[in-house]
Amino acid sequence: MATIEIYTKAFCGYCARAKALLDRKGAVYREIDVTMDRAGQEAMVARANGGRTVPQIFIDDRHVGGSDDLAALEAKGELDALLKAD
Rank of each mutant, 00 (worst) to 15 (best):
K9H: 01
I6L: 05
E78F: 02
E5I: 06
A48I: 04
I32K: 02
G77A: 02
G50P: 10
M36D: 14
V34D: 12
I59P: 01
E78Q: 15
T8Y: 11
G51M: 11
M44S: 01
T3N: 10
A81K: 13
A43P: 10
A20M: 13
A72C: 01
G66T: 06
G13W: 12
D37Q: 09
I32R: 09
A39D: 15
D86V: 02
C12K: 07
V28I: 13
I57H: 00
K76W: 04
N49E: 14
G26Q: 08
L22R: 10
F11I: 05
R30S: 11
A27F: 05
V54M: 07
D33S: 02
M44K: 03
A20T: 15
R47H: 00
D69V: 05
T35H: 08
I32T: 11
V54Q: 06
V54D: 06
E42F: 05
A20E: 15
T35V: 06
Q41D: 13
S67L: 06
C15M: 08
L73G: 00
V54G: 00
K84I: 02
I32A: 02
T35G: 03
Y29K: 12
F58M: 05
A2N: 01
E31T: 03
I57D: 06
Y7Q: 09
F11V: 09
K9A: 11
R24M: 15
I57P: 03
T53D: 04
K9T: 14
L22W: 07
E42R: 13
E5D: 02
E74C: 01
R30T: 15
E78C: 05
D68N: 10
D33N: 14
C15Y: 08
A10S: 14
F11R: 12
P55N: 05
K84E: 13
G66I: 01
I32Q: 07
E74F: 00
D86E: 13
D86P: 03
A16K: 15
K76S: 11
Y14F: 15
D69L: 12
S67W: 01
D86F: 05
D23W: 09
M1T: 12
Y29F: 12
A2T: 14
R24F: 06
A20I: 09
D33G: 05
D68S: 10
L79K: 13
L82Q: 13
E42S: 10
G26T: 12
Q56N: 14
T35F: 03
D86R: 12
D33A: 05
E42D: 14
A43R: 11
G40E: 11
A85K: 08
C12I: 06
K84W: 00
A43E: 15
Y7R: 10
K25N: 14
R24S: 14
V45D: 02
A16D: 13
P55G: 06
K25L: 02
R30M: 08
